[in-house]
């Protein structure tokens, strides 16, 4: 039962990673921009949700605030900074968006202080249910998983079926070709960036009751989201989905069980130290192996 519970935890973490990396992979794949501020959008979403939840007590309003906050922040960042970076090389993009992280983090510290904000679980979702005999699981986390799956499906359909989705897929494969076909890519870029910001905001707002809302929370998940993009393949939403679940599961399972396994063969304190160290390496190890075996990512056709 413990294993099942940890699998659910892994999936839930994977879903959060997916919401982050879906936007990241599209922005990188289609626009060619390395957007480090994606983590900041996540943080903005979490803060906006936390503040509104504290003021109104409504989880629904908090969610709306999280989405709106991240979307507005995304639009402002795109219009003021990112738009000037499309034609620049990646180093310029990293420098500019890293500077933005510092500015946004400092602003958040000045506004809200260093104390983490804690958000109460929405009362309707704060209980646990018995899924199987012996497996009791918090409803909120199940809802997070469900929302993530719905979003994944909701993305897959338009991307595979609609005209704008065709453009997104085409743009992720060959920007040059799409431009040459006469597609107004500025519009496409704005849509992609806005969509990415919304997803990051959703991830942040949903994380607010589970994690501490604090400055720097965006960077923790940003790094893992980049790892997921590499594992799944740049530009592939499907890759982001499976890559995120894989990374979420591996990270969670290793953290939960590796120290215990090692304790069978060595002293307790050593096992904990080694297990902790190894499990935080797990996802990066996975990325390294993927890069060796399928350098373009697991879900991108290798050429």
């Amino acid at each position: 039962m413990l294993v099942l519970e940890q699998i659910l935890n892994g999936i839930q973490f994977g879903i959060a990673l997916f919401l982050m990396s879906a936007g990241l992979t599209l922005i990188f794949g289609i626009m060619g921009v390395i957007n480090l501020t994606h983590g900041s959008l996540y943080m903005v979403g979490a803060y906006a949700a936390a503040l509104v939840a504290a003021k109104t007590g409504s989880a629904l309003l908090a969610l709306v605030a999280g989405l709106a906050g991240a979307a507005v922040a995304g639009i402002v960042i795109e219009a003021l900074v990112i738009r000037r970076l499309y034609a620049r090389d990646h180093l310029d993009q990293v420098l500019a968006t890293f500077a933005l992280i510092l500015i946004i983090n400092q602003t958040a510290t000045m506004l809200f202080g260093r104390q983490p904000l804690f958000v109460a679980m929405p009362p309707a979702l704060s209980h646990s249910v018995t899924l199987l005999p012996g497996l009791v699981y918090p409803v909120y986390r199940l809802v997070v998983i469900a929302v993530g799956l719905v979003v994944a499906l909701g993305l897959a359909l338009p991307i595979n079926r609609t005209r704008i989705g065709m453009l997104v897929r085409a743009g992720a494969t060959s920007r040059e070709m799409v431009r040459a076909l006469g597609v107004d890519i500025r519009l496409l870029y704005t849509i992609i960036f806005g969509l990415g910001a919304l997803l990051a905001g959703l991830a942040g707002a949903m994380a607010a009751p589970i994690l501490a809302v604090q400055v720097g929370m965006g960077e923790q998940i940003l790094i893992l989201a980049f790892v997921v993009v590499v594992i799944g393949g740049v530009g592939s939403i499907r890759g982001a989905f499976y890559g995120a679940l894989l990374a979420g599961l591996i990270d969670t399972m290793l953290r939960a069980f590796l120290p215990g396994l090692l304790r069978q063969v060595m002293a307790g304190s050593n096992a904990d130290a080694l297990g902790g160290g190894l499990s935080s390496m797990g996802v990066y190890l996975l990325m390294a192996i993927v890069l060796l075996v399928r350098p373009k990512g697991l879900f991108v056709r290798q050429s």
Partner: peptide, 19 residues
Amino acid sequence: QLLPDFTPLDTVMLAVQAR
């Protein structure tokens, strides 16, 4: 610079719809 996972029809439709 074609898109390997598209069909020829999709590819040309993309151009038509852009126009």
